[in-house]
Design a protein around this nucleic acid. Structure first.
Length: 551
RNA sequence: GGCUUGUUGGUCAAGUGGUUAAGACGCCGCCCUCUCACGGCGGAAACAGGGGUUCGACUCCCCUACAAGCUACCA
């Protein structure tokens, strides 16, 4: 087609619409005035109503990249696929990220003053896309394609049989070289069409692309006449990405590694549109071991509950701990930094895109729990109280009513369980749910699933009876423990560890074994905070009741 | 099938031509200790395989294996 025919075609396709010009848009959305090291990043989720760890992972990376250098982090909703749209999804994105302390500077759903680069929802940007699509048609870089699904299917089949590259390109691009008259005829028949890019790429050329994470990558040029506008006039991801990230002045596109393969398409699109290419950083996906195959695979929201962000809320993981965990995955030198600067906020860490991992990390629950223990142990009991209380109110109301009835009691329980005031803090608390369980010994008699005695039933009985007969509530911790030692002495247990070690055969055990019997009898557990203190929180009556149940 | 990217101990990972190949989690042992913890010390445990290049390869190149991603009018 000639230049004039292209212009005529563009009029034919878009003439009915009142479109702004490209220049008007460029003026509407001026380049941001930021330092030259500042980055503009964005989170661009589909509103599927589901937030998973991967979303949080990249959101945190985006947010850190923007905010460590006074850049901008915004939210754009990619709802070009109507099938996936879910009510309330935008709020879910904003809320769940806020819960983890990640806030946007501008974007969708943030209310007034949330930025001049909007609309931030793709379904509201149709005219904008059309302006640029029309321009592409005028320049002969895009054309309508009236192929229907079965035709495309037939092409693909033929290609597969011939073992050729599948897709709509070259001689398979049947509408690529149609005349204006043929197109006009198809339009007049009311046939639906999509708009495709007229690719200028060569099948045997490649180019090197510099990814901020992966480094230099050699990629083939794009040769596919990809769809840029679907038959309903809504753009595909590729086209929307080019137009949006250009007009919203994104400087760094951080996205999942599955997009790396479409970089050639994006590069061609940016060139065709006359846009400057942003920097790209393609991240690896978080993986997990597939319980069925034993292999490593991408975490999926379908089969992995620990993938859902709501899982962490429901289990009562402290958002700060999750953040710390993700930071250690994101930047491998974070952990060391954090150890050296335990008081510093993660926001003070010099985050670097370059330090990001290029292979998929396995989600490691053990590691997460270890971090939780460390982080929680550094808080004061008031903060932990507040956190657990809020969680219990929402997720365990019946326990909440009992455990939090007496604030002073709960505070002293927490002080004890955390080792506040001791030389070293304890590290028993992982999350709110587990903490409530840990703390339950102060509010309920030990129930099922308790630890078992390691001594014989006869010895247990003897020890407990002996203990009960000697017990005096007025004893202080020292005296109380002296009595434990006496019991050990009387029942054939060693009271001196060294003596015991030298001749273990001469004894049934040592003091700690006797203490363990008493501990398990009272609490149902081998691992608890200081026993004497526990007794003085639950009271003499309660202790005696629990003990007599065991004799 | 084609294209792309990966592969360092069980897991997360430093490492960028010459290292006894860090560290963390987990596991095991010892020590400390008035019981539980905390803490301290130590241990087992790795460069997927094969070819090159080089005086010398975890590091560079090639091949193979394995894994992941893409190959839509989904993102």
């Amino acid at each position: 087609m000639t230049e004039n025919e292209n212009i005529e075609l563009a009029e034919l396709l878009f003439g009915e619409e009142e479109l702004k010009t490209r220049e008007e848009y460029e003026e509407m959305y001026p380049y941001r005035k930021l330092g030259n090291k500042s980055e503009v990043t964005r989170l661009a989720p589909s509103p599927t109503g589901f937030m998973h760890l991967g979303n949080l992972y990249s959101a945190l990376a985006d947010e850190r990249i923007a905010h460590t250098k006074e850049g901008v982090f915004f939210l754009r909703i990619e709802d070009t696929d109507a099938k996936r749209k879910v009510e309330g999804a935008v709020e879910l994105v904003i809320d769940s990220l806020k819960y983890f302390g990640i806030e946007f500077d501008e974007g969708e759903g943030l209310g007034q003053g949330s930025g001049i680069y909007g609309p931030y929802t793709q379904s509201e940007r149709k005219e904008i896309y059309h302006t640029f699509a029309k321009e592409l048609v005028e320049k002969g870089l895009a054309y309508p394609c009236f192929c229907e699904e079965d035709e495309l299917e037939a092409i693909r089949k033929e290609q597969e049989e011939k073992k050729e590259l599948t897709g709509y390109y070259g001689r398979y691009a049947v509408w690529r070289e149609k005349s204006l008259d043929e197109i006009k005829e198809a339009i007049s028949m009311g046939k639906p069409y999509v708009l495709r890019l007229r690719s200028q790429g060569s099948p045997d050329k490649e180019f090197t692309f510099k990814d901020e994470i992966k480094g230099e990558v050699n990629l083939p040029e794009n040769i596919h006449d990809v769809v840029i506008l679907k038959k309903d006039g809504i753009p595909t991801y590729h086209f929307a990405h080019a137009v949006d990230d250009h007009l919203m002045r994104t400087t760094l596109v951080l996205r999942g590694g599955e997009w790396l393969a479409s970089v050639p398409t994006h590069v061609e699109l940016f060139n065709a549109l006359g846009f400057k290419l942003p920097k790209y950083a393609h991240t690896a996906h978080m993986m997990k071991i597939d319980p069925e195959t034993g292999g490593k695979r991408k975490l999926s929201k379908r089969s992995d509950p620990e993938m859902s962000l709501s899982f962490y809320r429901e289990e009562g993981y402290h958002p700060h701990c999750i953040k710390i965990y993700l930071m250690t995955l994101l930047n491998s030198n974070f952990e060391e930094w954090h150890r050296n600067n335990p008081e510093a906020l993660p926001e003070e860490f010099p985050f670097s895109v370059k330090k990001m991992n290029n292979s998929g990390a396995l989600f490691d629950m053990d590691k997460l729990e270890s971090i939780c223990k460390d982080e929680l142990s550094m808080l004061d009991e008031g903060a932990v109280y507040e956190f657990i209380e809020n969680w219990a109110k929402e997720f365990a109301p019946e326990k909440h009513a009992v455990y939090f009835a007496d604030k002073e009691k709960m505070l002293s329980v927490l002080r004890l369980c955390m080792g506040v005031g001791q030389k070293r803090r304890r590290k028993d608390l992982i999350n709110a749910k587990q903490a409530l369980e840990f703390v339950s010994i102060f509010f309920e008699s030990p129930g099922d699933g308790e630890d078992e005695f390691k001594q014989t039933p006869e010895d247990v009985k003897a020890i407990l009876e002996d203990y009960l007969s000697r017990f005096d509530y007025e004893d202080d911790n020292q005296v109380w423990f002296e009595k434990i030692k006496e019991i050990a002495q009387n029942n054939g247990f060693a009271t001196d560890r060294k003596v015991y070690k030298e001749n273990p055969g001469n004894f049934k055990g040592e003091t700690s074994d006797v203490a363990e019997v008493v501990r398990i009898a009272i609490t149902g557990r081998a691992n608890t905070p200081d026993l004497w203190s526990i007794i003085h929180i639950i009271g003499e009556e309660e202790m005696k009741e629990r003990l007599s149940a065991k004799i």
